[in-house]
Design a binder for these strands. Structure first.
Lengths: 204, 204, 204, 204
DNA sequence: CATGAATGAGTATTCATTCAT
DNA sequence: AATGAATGAATACTCATTCAT
């Protein structure tokens, strides 16, 4: 589609372009629809040239996974610098997820596809799993701190709750195109993790 | 792999066998690795025979989606008959998910793959989406009842919480092979939806 | 398309129905598009039943050729009984071709396809060639008689002229859907075979 | 069959070789027997390479039709430069047809097959029809000139007669391998279009 | 670095034909 | 006489990968 007349340029730059093109294509057509020729076309180079920079499709997918992880971790690092209270930091997580959903939806789509693939591709798993565990640990740490400083409920299981939060956000995006629903879900999470409403719950 | 000497049998039965074989293969190798020849081999029939019963790969995937939906809905109907209190019924949801995770893990794996595919395949979407919405609505109804009868916290947003619950369970299964972690997650969900622990949460 | 609920009936009748269905299908889709399943469907029977009556596709094509020849020869016999003068009998040939073109166009289309096939199929050739030669001889005989009785020009080469006439009629039907053009061609043939117009031809 | 060790060469040249190979194969086995693998083998390349140069069988047949038309039109242009009188030019037509029949018989065979196919293939029709009409018009123009300058009979219908001539020549080649018969037919045509022999025709 | 051409190993699908009932 | 189910052998077409320039 997007064919720009390409001049020669160094491998590092080309590999970045290739990873980006692959990501967009996966977002459009899924993993099974990913073709090296299409990637090359999108970058504006020949298939043979693509193979010069990335030797095989397997290597390409690894490259893609790494590029995804790099971006994901960079975002996480950025978040780490902000937020004072635990609740602030948790809300920052919600806000960042919301930002990606709005401005870079391909990121989540491709992450999901890669997560599926990780199940049967060790090389992908080696890149993706640590990233996912890192995310969970990051949120779990926030939750643990919040529990300990009393801003979150004391019966929190940080790992379990972090898993719940991540799953909830991802699932909220699955069908509803409407971003407002994601907001309802994160609001619900927040309420659920702080304290029960007035007269709520159980037999006294 | 598994070639059982097959005798003749009618189309309805063969289609069931084919759907089952396809499901197992997708669980093993994912959607992109699904080959009609492999399915036929697994059923113990010729590829041409497979095409006699299921005219195209597209139709095959639709059949697969339908078979999944049928099984899923049957399970849901079964659950509907049991449980007295809202909490009982919620716990039944957890238990059923747990049962599938233990005894029929392919079901969840394939459901996830189909959910991804639904994003770009209208026919699959037409089968899968209603099923997913049905699940969410089913749980949301339980939650709404629980909120209204006081067994669950009054600030519940049933749709948002149902989405959270489903996402949490699915995500709990994603990496951890350990079923115990799923139990921790559902326990956390339960605590989060009932009442805040003793001294927990908020500004005192 | 046309599926009539079929009862059992004898092979001779079934073979006639099959030949007719095959003829219509070839007229529609050409030889390369001829499928035994389509024929069976058109007759309203199962493919296996078709093979019961006509053992193979080769045999089917032979059957088709024979059915064509039978109809063609029957028409020729009918013409043979009419016409007094040579010119009358020639005009009867034109009229009969015209009649087929109007009322049974599939006949000519299929005959052309079979003629092509005869080039590389000895069995078809064995049926079709005698039919074509018979037609030519039939017309050549008319021409020879006309030449001898003075109603046609004396420098006629009957075989060559008969070949010309048949080719002219067939070619007249090839592109022009308009039957009027066939009439112009046969009129031209007639003029050409009788005598030169008034001041026509050559340097005096 | 004929595998020549092939070196690399550019697409234009390869497409020419492919068109030629396809023509020979159709002459041998007809349209229905045309297989991409056979064409590739004849050219001495891999099937995939064939598809690299000609993307589909449909495109291949269009290429074939164009190559045929190009050769046919080139011949017609060559004829146009020669011949003084109308009769000379008409005889040039006969001679050229005769030359093809002797030295390039595949040309006529394939043209016939393509003409049949044109009936149900619009793309082929778009290439073949103008070629056929061009041929007819070319001959009709010769005949009209001959009629007007008195070298041909005055009652000529140029279009009808041109159609007759073409059909006659084609039909003369259909069964008789003997080229002498074509000569008898063209001689008959010539006589028929000039003037009636001595005492010939009509009622005295 | 870059590319047009080439290729082997697949991949879904088709079709005439056969078999068991 | 009839049929639903089954099959082997093809067939066009695809795709990641390689090679020569």
């Amino acid at each position: 589609m997007v064919i720009k007349p390409q001049t020669r340029c160094d491998t590092a730059q080309r590999r970045r372009e290739i990873a980006l093109a692959a990501r967009q294509l996966i977002a459009d057509k899924g993993f099974e629809g990913l073709r090296t020729r299409d990637i090359a076309e999108r970058v504006g180079i020949n298939v043979a040239t693509l193979h010069y920079h990335v030797p095989s499709k397997e290597a390409l997918i690894e490259l893609l996974a790494q590029s995804l992880r790099d971006e994901f971790i960079a975002r996480q690092e950025r978040r780490r610098r902000d937020g004072v209270t635990s609740l602030d930091r948790l809300r920052l997580e919600f806000a960042d997820f919301r930002d990606i959903a709005l401005n870079n939806p391909a990121l989540h789509v491709v992450m999901t596809e890669l997560a599926d693939r990780a199940r049967r591709d060790e090389k992908v798993a080696a890149v993706i799993r640590p990233m996912q565990l890192g995310w969970r640990d990051h949120i779990a740490a926030i939750l643990a701190a919040g529990r300990d400083d009393g801003s979150l409920r004391p019966d929190l299981d940080p790992d379990a709750a972090a898993t719940m939060i991540i799953g909830a956000m991802i699932n909220a995006r699955r069908h509803d195109k409407d971003i407002a629903f994601l907001d309802r879900v994160t609001a619900q999470i927040e309420r659920a993790l702080t304290r029960a409403g007035g007269s709520g719950g159980g037999k006294p």
